[in-house]
Design a protein around this nucleic acid. Structure first.
Length: 817
RNA sequence: GCCCGGGUGGCGAAAUUGGUAGACGCGCCAGACUCAAAAUCUGGUUCUGGAAACAGAGUGUCGGUUCGAUUCCGACCCCGGGCACCA
């Protein structure tokens, strides 16, 4: 190596050495326990942004640390290649989505390679590869056969100009994000996966995911939203069918003074037929409902109907209202309203002059004034006949069983989670392998005809999916009757591809559907790294998919990701850097200027992984400076010539102090890498060790051996973060091995022993002096020394010593009064 | 409203089991080298007072436990994130 540090020369040559050695090829027969290290694969948007750099550097640090610890590590990389931006580029610039995507992948792969990520590129794939989505289609058909897939009409946001369905987040102020046209609520048939069948398991197993951050588990619990309650039937006069409501508070049943139904509820429709005011309100509700976000801000409104139902306990008539806040999709689309004990019902009752009845009173000193607000806490029952005096919990049980005995109530668990709608009316996605036949209905594509290839030779006319007008695609014969049929032209939600890619990496070329036995070796993923923005959807879908694959005998674990690291966001000027905001922090300029090691080290040093932070170039410059210092330190040391084998007995005090620092660094960094995931403090620890080397004046040859040991330790410990410069200097120190094939150094406990320590002397908890004492000094001796200290004397003089507390190796606190 | 995080110098942060608050870095200041600048090196850098020794204050606010609290407990304030007419 040359005498001065040039990161670009160093990085290129080290990367070539890794390639030649096949350093990151992972096999199932490697020595050591397996370790599957995965960072969320990127959408190939064009170029890496700072968020990517952070994510993949963290993944690579974990990868390289575990290699040093002797694990057989696999770190793959691929591309989440289907999605809307490719279509937008096609519409705007006329570039076909497939070639746009492939070009982006090539560029971004090059960027990743120049960052020195230790990836097994032999496992690479893109989700738009037919060899990949083939098995997604195959598995979808298996799920269909098992009844876990169904097709149902559902409300969507329809853009009448772009002729497409929009996701909720693409509706801005009730208008399409691209066309600006008012979005319509439209009912369209969609494919669904029955994720609600797995809601209980998805929720309960969160408690066992000890390697997941609490925040993510909490978000998922929230999203699944399990509640325990009962369905209560209110008989309807003149009808066989009762009105069923769902409630979690049956203890308040006697306080119900009206029931409210959603505008889409059958009872509302019946009332609308007879009453024009109700009909007008139902119509209004249909048009109002656009984006989900707007529904929440809507003012509570309703109309009375001339219908009434019978209270299941008292037999009294209860009026039926149609209200805009009742959701048809949750529970049964109807609620029993208890204005005394539900704030929303209270507001509605006040607005329309409906009676408010108290049936719960506080047991403690809780305030309860129904003229001001509803009392929503649990308490003791009043005005409830036989149930008076019971606690809410007792009344829940009593009322539930009384209703059950009458045949008017059933316990029910409800979820906020809805089934997963996977249809997208778009082109650049995986074709849904289904055929519509007038005679046979829905017919899955036979396995032998898979994959259903997405045509790549397409022309966009407007924004509509070209598949809908492409006869060669949709015109097919029915596999059942052989008659004319139509192929499904919708494609899958791209979350489908990202829900099982981690399993495919284990056997990327498997032709045995859809993974092979290698998946049992590698899965579950031991450490998964990714952005907090995927805390709910992607991670929930992937957990669901893993259970689907398990129940099909494809994998043999319950959860896909054992340990999870959720990254904070990389900000610039207080804004998040992401592809959607169009504010792309460009790492390429920094790479060109400072090199990969400086960028990687700065990224790790800036903040702990789970914290968001503001990006600054000054940090990269600083770490580039550090790389250069490290380089100079090693080369200055080499100028002193060869060193003898280390014999601790021959060290001077300075040499012994340096050696202690070396071994403290090993112990600290090990804990920071492995347990705490605090890579910022690993960098600090190496800085400190290098500072100690700079300050050490070697007194003899043994001291120089201690310097050599310190430098080699610094290189090894830093190598997961700055792999190039450390590798080059490792060689300069005469080592022929690749650092990635080395083992983490052992801590020499003997090096940590100090024969003299500095103790702090406090008087009443305030530091008043310091003592240099022998490690084994006894308490009486310490007390005497402490009380003799000049500054301590000033604060103790004229006072009585009440107590002396000694913490061995740390401090002495003299309590006076 | 509910559920998670978090609040420490000019800035990013550290303090792992209740034991020296501010490690490490950025920035800034001073000095060395230089005709000069850049680069590099050395020293300083929480605030207030002081030449210094040292003293006083200090980890969002108020209170508690303790010989001792950034750390534990209680109440509150603020910031970030998630969910939200979910019955």
């Amino acid at each position: 190596m040359s005498a001065s540090y040039d990161p670009h020369v160093v990085e290129k040559s080290v990367q070539e050495a890794w390639d030649e050695a096949g350093a990151f090829r992972a096999g199932e027969s490697g020595a050591g326990e397996k370790f599957y290290c995965l960072a969320m694969f990127p959408y190939p948007s064009g170029q890496l942004h700072m968020g990517h750099v952070r994510c993949y550097t963290l993944g690579d640090v974990i990868n390289r640390y575990h290699r040093l610890k002797g694990y057989n590590v696999m770190q793959p990389m691929g591309w989440d290649a289907f999605g809307l931006p490719a279509e937008n580029a096609a519409i705007k610039n006329g570039i076909p989505p497939a070639s746009w995507t492939r070009d982006n992948i090539d560029y971004m792969r090059g960027q990743m390679q120049s960052l020195g990520f230790g990836i097994d590129w032999s496992r690479e794939f893109a989700t738009c590869d037919p060899e990949y989505y083939h098995w997604e289609q195959w598995f979808f058909i298996r799920l269909y056969e098992k009844g876990l897939v169904y097709r149902k009409s559902s409300m969507v946001n329809w853009d009448p100009v772009d002729q497409t369905v929009l996701a909720n987040e693409q509706v801005v102020d009730g208008r399409g994000w691209r066309s600006g046209a008012p979005v319509e609520r439209r009912e369209m048939p969609q494919w669904f996966l029955k994720i609600t069948d797995y809601a209980d398991e998805l929720l309960d197993e969160l408690d066992r995911l000890e390697g997941w951050p609490e925040s993510v588990k909490s978000m998922q619990r929230n999203w699944i939203g399990r509640s325990e309650g009962i369905d209560i039937d209110f008989p309807v006069s003149g009808s066989q069918d009762p009105l069923t409501v769902y409630t979690t508070r049956p203890d308040t049943l006697l306080g119900s003074t009206y029931v409210a139904v959603a505008a889409e509820h059958p009872l509302a429709r019946r009332a609308a037929e007879r009453n024009p005011a109700v009909a007008a309100f139902v119509d209004k509700c249909r048009n109002m409902k656009t984006a989900e976000a707007e529904v929440a801000t809507l003012e509570k409104e309703g109309v009375p109907t001339d219908l009434s139902v019978t209270h299941p306990l008292t037999g009294d008539p209860v009026p039926v209202w149609v209200a805009n806040f009742v959701l048809m999709e949750y529970g049964s689309g109807a609620v029993m309203s208890v204005p005394g004990h539900d704030q929303r019902d209270w507001e509605f009752a006040r607005k329309y002059g409906i009676p408010i009845r108290q049936v719960i009173e506080p047991t403690g000193d809780g305030a309860c004034d129904l003229a001001e607000a509803a009392y929503t806490d649990y308490g003791r029952l009043v005005n409830s006949g036989a149930y008076d005096g019971m606690s809410s919990a007792e009344a829940f049980e009593a009322i539930a069983s009384d209703l059950a005995a009458k045949g008017l109530g059933r316990r029910r668990t409800n979820y906020r989670l809805r089934d997963w709608g996977v249809s997208r009316q778009r082109y650049w996605g995986c074709p849904i392998p289904m055929i519509h036949c007038d005679a046979c209905g829905i017919v899955p594509v036979p396995d032998d005809d898979l994959p259903v290839l997405l045509p790549t030779d397409v022309k966009f006319e407007g924004v509509r999916s070209p598949l809908t007008t492409m006869e060669s695609f949709y015109k097919v014969k029915c596999p059942g009757c052989g008659g004319d049929a139509r192929r499904e032209t919708d494609t899958f939600d791209t979350f489908m591809e990202s829900s099982w890619y981690y399993a495919r990496f284990a056997s990327p070329d498997a032709n045995r559907p859809m993974v092979d036995e290698r998946v049992d070796y590698w899965t579950p993923v031991d450490h998964y790294v990714g952005g907090i923005e995927h805390a709910i959807l992607h991670l929930l879908y992937a957990r669901f998919y893993h259970k689907l694959m398990r129940d099909h005998g494809l994998v043999h674990s319950d959860e896909p990701f054992t340990r999870l690291l959720m990254l904070g966001m990389v900000l610039k000027d207080g804004r998040k850097m992401s592809k959607s905001s169009g504010d792309v922090g460009d790492p390429q300029a920094l790479l060109d200027k400072y090199g990969a090691d400086a960028v990687r080290t700065a990224m790790m040093f800036a903040a702990p992984p789970d914290q968001s932070f503001e990006w600054s170039e000054a940090g990269v410059e600083g770490q580039g400076r550090f790389c250069k210092r490290l380089w100079n330190l090693v080369h200055e040391h080499l100028e002193g010539g060869e060193v003898p084998a280390l014999d601790p007995a021959g060290l001077s005090d300075a040499g012994r102090a340096l050696r202690r620092k070396t071994h403290e660094t090993i112990a600290r960094a090990d804990d920071d890498y492995g347990r705490r995931l605090m890579f910022n403090t690993v960098v600090s620890a190496v800085h400190e060790l290098c500072n100690a080397v700079s300050r050490t004046e070697p007194g003899n040859d043994q001291d120089r051996a201690a310097v050599r040991e310190a430098l080699k330790t610094a290189l090894l410990v830093l190598s997961p973060i700055a792999p190039h410069v450390t590798q080059a200097l490792w060689q300069d120190l005469g080592e022929s091995s690749l650092l990635v094939a080395c083992r983490w150094p052992a801590v020499d406990d003997a090096a940590l022993v100090q024969d003299s320590v500095e103790l702090v002397v406090q008087v009443n908890g305030k530091v008043r002096g310091r003592l240099q004492v022998a490690q084994d000094a006894d308490e009486a001796e310490l007390r005497e020394l402490a009380l003799a200290n000049d500054n301590v004397v000033r604060f103790v003089a004229g006072k009585t010593v009440r107590k002396v507390i000694t913490v061995p190796g740390k401090l002495i606190n003299i309590v006076v009064g």
